[in-house]
Amino acid sequence: MNNWERFLNIDRRWIYLLIAIVVIVPFFIRMGLPVVPTQEVRSVYDLVDSLGPDDAIFIGWDFDPGTEAENQPMGVAVLRHAFARHVPVFVTAYWPLAQGLAEMGLASVFDTRVPGNFVYVPWAEWESVRAAGYAGRDSLESAWEAAGNSLPEGARGWVFEGVDLANLGYLPYFSLVILGMGTSIANQYPTDAYGNNLHDMPILQAHKNLREVDLAVTLAGSTACMSWVVYGTSRVGLPVAFGVTAVMATDYFPYIQSGQIVGMMGGLRGAAEYEVLETEGGYTETTGKAYRGMDVQSLAHILIILLVILGNIAYFAGGFHKKTAMKNRR
C-alpha cells in the first residue's frame, strides 16, 4: 500500500474530527460574514411585510426535532416579523413532536429577558377587557394598557392570544386537516392547543377558513410541505411559502418558477437571509441564530471542498484512475 492509497483509506474518524473542529471553532471566533438575501427569500419577506392586522398567516411547524437547527430559526424569524406588523398568526403542527417545537419557537419570541421580544398575553388573562366589549386590536391594546399593564423596557409589543395568535397545535393526518380547513378552521380545531374555545376568538371570527388567510409558511424537513400546496394552494388558492432544509431546497425550485409557491427559505442560509432582511427592515436590532450559524456552514463547506480536492489529487497522483474501481470499504 503506497502513501496515496494509505491517504485515501484514512480512518474516517479523522475526517469526523476535522468536521467537529470547524463546527465548534466559529462559535468562539465570530467571522460575521455578509449574507446577501436571494429573491426566493425576499419574496416571502415582502409578502409578510405587505400584510397587516386585517390579514392573517399560518405558520406550519411541519418538521421533526431532527431538523430543528435548520427549520426553527425560520419559524422564529417569520413569527417576529408577523408580530411586529400585528399580522394575526395561526400556528399548527404536522407531527406530534412538532407541537412542542412550535411552543419552543413561540417561547423564544416571548422571552422578555431578550430585548426586542414580545409580551404574550394569554387568552384567559385579558378576559376582563374582553368582557367589556372587544372592538378591534387598537382599542384592545389601549384598554389593556389603561388597566395598568405596561410594556417592559425593551419589549417590542403585546401579543394577545386570540387576536394576534392562535396556537392550534397538532392533529393526526394533517393533510386531511388542511383539506378540512379549506372549508372551516373551527370544524377541524374546535379548541386551540390549550383547550380554549376557538369560536370565541376574534382571530377566528375574522378568518374562518383558508380562503380568508393570506399566506401559509410551512417549515418542513420532509414532503409535509407539499400538503399545503396540494390541499391549500390548489383547492382554495392559499398562497404558500416554504421553509425547507437545504438538502430539500433544490426539489422545490420548479414550484417557485410555476408560481405555485410564493418563495422559499432554503436551509439555515434561508433563515439567515430572512434575519438579515428583518434587521434591514428595522424589525430586529440584531440578526439571530441562523446568521451566526452561517460562519459554521461556510467553514464546513470549505472543508468538504478541500476534502474533495485532496481526495482527487490522491486518486490521480496514486494512479488509481488507471486501475479498476477500488473498493474502499472499511
Partner: peptide, 10 residues
C-alpha cells in the same frame, strides 16, 4: 375576504 372585524362588530 372578511377582514374588517371592527366593521363586523359594528
Amino acid at each position: 375576504m372578511l377582514k374588517h372585524l371592527e366593521l363586523l362588530l359594528l
